[in-house]
Write a protein that binds this DNA or RNA. Structure first.
Length: 224
DNA sequence: CCAGACGTTGTT
DNA sequence: GTCTGG
DNA sequence: CCAGACGTTGTT
DNA sequence: GTCTGG
């Protein structure tokens, strides 16, 4: 699931919504229409009480990994049992992050041959945050920052299309997700639930979104 | 104790 | 790093 | 996630 | 079939 998303809000819109004071050099906030695993994306973390954005690669590589290729398999983390997974238990305590987005795609596969892409977003049109985890790998030539997006069961809107959905945090939960003082896993895990379907919408889109090479606005054109 | 794995989705 | 299996 | 490639030797 | 690249 959740192997593509969109970030089209401007830097000003995002700053207003998420209140980051600063951003590291190299943070790119150009609109994106087809963000795929292994690509760089701005991720919001808390650094000494300040919200800051940093570019990270999608596909979590645990800091102890021998081979960073493991990241190709770590684009999502199931919320169920997440605290028991060696790759995620550490980051769940101290490396929680917000993955900012405006929407995401999911493919409905009614049978083996059919694949229909849908675009999901908030009815408000506002950007939102996926619940994410990040880590830093330093066994290569360069420091490697990576992240993963947590998944849960689908809400009523997504259920007909797919059996999983990414965790979208309600705005009031975002600060708690980032708060390093909250270490009790019960408190943290209580935030990982399906988003309110009433506040979301979706529609079919063109299959041009199927190729991750097509990072173009046409990905969002409604289809039949 | 040490060695070895550490993941998800989707499909069968 | 941390957990499981032997 | 999906799309696309999947190899070596030897030469530059 | 499986891995890499986007």
């Amino acid at each position: 699931m959740c192997g593509r998303f969109v970030k089209k809000s401007s830097k000003e819109e995002l700053r207003k919504r998420f209140g980051f004071d600063d951003s590291l050099g190299g943070v790119m906030l150009e609109p994106r229409y087809n963000i795929a695993p292994s690509q760089e994306h701005p991720v919001l973390i808390l650094n000494q009480d300040r919200r800051l954005l940093r570019m990270m690669k999608w596909g979590l590589v645990p800091h102890w990994s021998r081979d960073p290729k493991i990241g190709y398999k770590m684009i999502n983390a199931r919320s169920e049992g997440i605290e028991e997974k060696p790759s995620f238990s550490g980051p769940l305590k101290k490396k929680r992050c917000l993955v900012i987005a405006d929407g995401f795609y999911e493919w409905h596969k009614p049978d083996k041959k059919t694949k229909i892409p849908y675009y999901f977003s908030l009815k408000s049109g506002e950007p939102f945050a996926f619940a994410g985890l990040w880590d830093l790998w330093e066994k290569g030539d360069e420091p490697l920052y990576t992240f993963t997006i947590i998944t849960t069961s689908p809400n009523e809107l997504m259920e007909p299309v797919h059996n999983r959905m990414p965790v979208i945090l309600s705005e009031s939960d975002e600060a708690r997700w980032l708060d390093p003082e909250i270490t009790d896993s019960k408190d943290v895990l209580s935030l990982l639930k399906p988003y309110n379907a009433e506040e979301m919408e979706c529609f079919k889109v063109s299959t041009i979104v199927n190729s991750p090479k097509n990072d173009v606005p046409e990905c969002l054109i409604p289809a039949n």
